[in-house]
Amino acid sequence: MKTAKQRNDNKRSQLAWLIGSAASGAAVLSLATIALYPHQSHPQALVSAKVVKKAAKPAAHGTSSREPIVYKSPPRSLIPQGRQLFAEDCQTCHGPSAEGSVRAPNLQGLGAATIDFWVSTGRMPLADPTEQAAIKPPRLSHEQQLAVSAYVASLAPGGPAIPSPNLGLANLSKGESLFAENCAACHTITGVGDALANNIYAPSLWAATPTQVAEAIRTGPGNMPRFGPGTFSNQEVDDIVRYVTYIQHPEDRGGLALGGVGPVAEGFVAILIGLGSLMVAGYWIGGRAQ
């Protein structure tokens, strides 16, 4: 018969084997997950062929033409309405003819896309001047936004018209590569935004519409660089817009998205739940062995 010491040693060996097996199993499972879902284990990896195939479907925000982006000026019939709205909400800072003042910049010659971006994202009209205009629900309706854009664009030539991306022609993989190279440094690869210097931040892109993303690329709002046709073609802008719309609603087939903030949250959950569960199991088995 085995002595009590031999039985305890045997149970300790079983406990060590159980913990080692669990750790090995977790490692194997992690490797299997990386092999099966590479775009989940590394956010900069290219998305699967299935997702790329979905990207080929025409989007509701796209156009029926074969052009990647169509630029349209607001109807000139909205200019009188826009003049009235501008006088009520904008001229106090920007001047009666949008010529600018010590409180706000000159808007003449910036184009309808610039005005539409700032108004449609709720950044303007600005009730409380701050270091950086915050995104908020727009005060103006869609027609009123177009009216203000039409009025300001009529004051002086220049600047792009309002873009309408055609996501049915966009390439998701190319958009991911372009975004990683040119945008992720500030907005992060998952588009959640990040803090910059001097109380400035790169906003989250999760609520941006395709038109607003294209407008931001072409007009460079705030501290963002302006990417003209010489830097990004219309097709490349269309590709980037497609990627941004994808990260807004990604296929999290590998499990919980955990806020889309990347490996920091994933590692925290792995330590807290994975290692914590092993420790609890070890204490429980050790307690029964005594």
Rank of each mutant, 00 (worst) to 15 (best):
A4E: 15
S13Y: 12
V28L: 07
S30D: 07
P43Q: 04
V51N: 13
K54G: 06
A55Q: 15
A56G: 15
K57G: 03
K57R: 13
A59E: 01
H61Y: 12
G62P: 07
S65P: 05
S65T: 15
Y71A: 03
P74C: 00
R76H: 00
Q81S: 10
Q81H: 05
E88C: 05
Q91L: 03
A98C: 12
E99M: 11
S101L: 10
S101E: 13
V102C: 02
L107M: 15
G111H: 00
A113S: 13
S120P: 01
T121F: 08
G122V: 00
L126W: 06
A127V: 04
T130V: 08
E131F: 10
P137Y: 02
P138E: 04
L140T: 03
S141M: 02
Q144Y: 05
Q145H: 02
A147V: 07
V148A: 00
G159H: 00
P160V: 12
I162L: 01
L167A: 07
A170G: 08
S173A: 14
G175L: 04
E181M: 05
A184H: 08
A185Y: 08
I189T: 14
T190E: 11
G193Y: 07
D194I: 10
D194N: 09
L196Y: 04
L196D: 09
N199K: 15
N199P: 11
I200P: 04
Y201G: 15
W206Q: 14
A208L: 09
T209P: 12
P210W: 06
V213Y: 04
A214V: 05
A216K: 01
I217R: 00
M224L: 04
R226V: 13
R226K: 15
P229K: 09
P229G: 11
T231G: 06
V237E: 04
I240E: 02
V241C: 13
Y243V: 03
Y246I: 10
H249V: 12
P250A: 10
G255M: 14
G259C: 10
G259L: 04
G262S: 11
A265V: 10
E266R: 15
I271E: 09
I271F: 13
L272N: 15
G274D: 14
V280H: 08
G282W: 13
G286N: 13
G287H: 14
